[in-house]
Design a protein around this nucleic acid. Structure first.
Length: 283
DNA sequence: ATGTGTTCCTGTCCGC
DNA sequence: TGCGGACAGGAACACA
């Protein structure tokens, strides 16, 4: 589900409810999501204060007063909801946890944070805060696309000699971290690059155009509160609205959104994932 | 080392 | 309405 803009939107929504607040009670309602929860997670969270709520790529990182950091990944369908808003069960009885409410954090001021994840591809783990960058889930992540370490020279270097399609390369979190299927499709459309083009065969000039395009698309999506297609919700249950700005994603057989282009958006499958693009203006 | 296909899980939508 | 199949914002893993 959530790519960087959605995760960042969720983090911002959680900030007032979590940062600086004490976790009064942690209810872990099943033993695992994608992987088992760490040993004694409920006890390690109970009584901890959230010192800082940060983000690395698609991971939300809650630094705790215990010296540990809670690592949260939303997978495809994960939601973090405040006071039960936005769950399917909300309309029936907001006091009862829903079927897919797997972790519930009750904060000292009475606010309830619920991790809801139907598909359970999400994950949570705890690691010492001073070693969190070396955690196995985080240590191989490429640079933040909105950070200083991500620039034209870096991307040119990383794509050099690579035989995979540019679409696949931009989805590889080791090359650049935070992009997912939606935003890669949108970035490639903006730059006029076909998703099928081999990454290592693009000219340096064309690769260079990807960097500002990635920054722009992600920045605009964050401003719009992310994209809501099926599962994604903000922490208050509200939808994001960047999906109204899609030029190609989820627009198969529709007219290309580029000014003056008469192409029709086409869907192809690459490494098992849908790519949407305009064969007329993306070459 | 690279590139590709499979797998985890539930829900929804579409065609018959 | 029911049933089967395709598909879904991710990414680790097994294998050529």
């Amino acid at each position: 589900m959530p790519e960087l803009p959605e995760v960042e939107t969720v983090r911002k929504g959680l900030l007032p409810a979590m940062e600086g607040k004490l976790i009064k009670r942690a209810d872990i309602r099943r033993p695992d999501l994608r992987w088992p929860f760490p040993e004694g997670m409920a006890d390690r969270l109970t009584g901890a204060r959230v010192l800082r709520l940060g983000r690395r790529s698609k991971y939300i990182l809650a630094d705790l007063s215990t010296g540990e950091t809670l690592i949260i990944h939303l997978g495809m369908s994960g939601r973090m909801l405040i006071n039960g808003l936005g769950t399917a069960e909300f309309h029936n009885n907001p006091a009862l946890p829903g079927k897919h409410d797997h972790v519930i954090l009750d904060m000292e001021d009475g606010t309830r944070i619920t991790f809801n994840d139907a598909r359970r591809f999400g994950a949570m783990d705890l690691a010492p805060t001073d070693e969190v960058e070396d955690h196995w889930l985080l240590k191989n992540l490429g640079p933040e696309p909105l950070g200083n370490r991500f620039d034209e020279a870096y991307l040119i270097g990383r794509l050099k000699g690579r035989n995979m399609p540019i679409k696949t390369a931009l989805l590889d979190q080791r090359i650049v971290s935070g992009l997912g299927n939606i935003y890669v499709c949108e970035v490639l459309h903006r730059t006029g690059i076909s998703p099928k083009r081999k990454a290592g065969k693009l000219s340096e000039a064309r690769v260079a155009t990807l960097v500002p395009a990635i920054r722009d698309v992600l920045g605009e999506a964050i401003e719009a509160g992310g994209s809501s297609l099926r599962d994604y919700r903000q922490t208050d249950g509200e939808l994001g609205y960047f999906q109204h700005s899609f030029a190609v994603y989820d627009r198969e057989n529709e007219r290309c959104a580029k000014e003056g282009c008469k192409g029709i958006v086409t869907r192809v499958v690459q490494s098992g994932r849908s790519s949407f693009y305009c064969p007329t203006c993306q070459r």
